[in-house]
């Protein structure tokens, strides 16, 4: 089965579709025209460069370079997660990147080693796309997880202080917020897992099938990736929040107010 390439001219037809969201935005005054164009522009540029780089990296397939590429993805995922949660990047970057790197690399290496049984654990064709899928979901989970956690404490400051006054340690007082934000972080992933195959044919399966793989192979990969995503999402959200405690709370057990100041 041949794979139909999309020519650059036919890609223009794809962009024509954007007339619909622009039209809706105009009519209902969503004021999303600018951000729509910006987002699509950014995506196109980023993907264009990613395509070039990946092409190069895949051809070279040097383990060290592949890992470095994943490292860069982790770096941007961490930055974007904090940024999107409207929190202080300077304060949180170190704990968050450590948490995201650890949880994603651990799950990634485990899957490559024990599930896919790769000879070369750092094979670009496996390492990079799977890392991308894990990180994309981890990112979303972390935005919700760490964002909800600190914003809920802020919104319910009196409730938080009250539990301290009842004798709670900092961790004990934070626990209800940890529970709530972690649930919110993984709920979409769980819903996604439960609806897969019926509601949606996930991107990776679609890709593999378009690439000529048998659907029976594709589903096995899909099951693997969904479980890997779930594990890395909950692990990284948990570790991110726990790791952020040291810089986010002061010795009085209160959240440092500058945590809510956006910077960088």
């Amino acid at each position: 089965m041949p794979i139909y390439d999309i020519s650059y001219t036919s890609l223009i037809f794809c962009f024509f579709l954007l007339a619909i969201p622009i039209f809706i935005s105009r009519k209902i005054r969503l004021e999303l025209e600018k951000s729509t164009m910006e987002a699509v522009f950014r995506m196109s540029i980023q993907l264009f460069f990613a395509g070039l780089f990946l092409n190069y990296i895949f051809n070279l397939n040097n383990g060290f370079l592949n890992l470095a590429w994943v490292g860069m993805m982790i770096f941007f995922a961490s930055y974007t997660a904090i940024k999107s949660a409207d929190l202080n990047v300077k304060k949180l970057f170190v704990p968050i990147i450590l948490a995201i790197a650890f949880s994603n690399l651990a799950v990634l290496i485990y899957v490559n080693k024990f599930v896919i049984n790769l000879e070369n654990l750092l094979d670009a064709r496996y390492l990079i796309p799977i890392a991308g899928m894990l990180l994309g979901n981890t990112l979303r989970g972390n935005v919700v997880g760490i964002g909800d956690f600190y914003n809920n404490i802020k919104r319910n400051e009196n409730r938080y202080l009250y539990s301290l006054s009842l004798g709670a340690g900092m961790y004990e007082a934070a626990l209800p917020y940890l529970r709530k934000s972690l649930k919110a972080a993984v709920k979409p992933t769980l819903a996604n897992i439960a609806s897969i195959g019926i509601v949606s044919l996930p991107g990776m399966m679609t890709g593999q099938i378009l690439g000529g793989a048998s659907p029976l192979v594709a589903i096995k990969y899909q099951i693997t990736i969904m479980i890997a995503i779930y594990v890395s999402t909950i692990l990284s959200a948990t570790l991110s929040i726990l790791a952020s405690f040291r810089t986010a709370f002061d010795e009085y057990g209160l959240v440092n107010q500058d945590l809510y100041e956006k910077n960088l």
């Binding site: 409730r159 009250y162 006054s165 340690g169 209800p176």
Partner: peptide, 30 residues
């Protein structure tokens, strides 16, 4: 915080059954 009992005008215990919230408070190590 361990020795003083602090009662406020608008007590806010959070979400959940009163029973569970009470149990949580008495599960604190202090």
């Amino acid at each position: 915080r361990k020795e003083i009992a602090y009662v406020v005008q608008d007590t806010d215990l959070g979400e959940g059954k009163v029973k569970n919230l009470l149990n949580e408070i008495f599960s604190y190590r202090a």
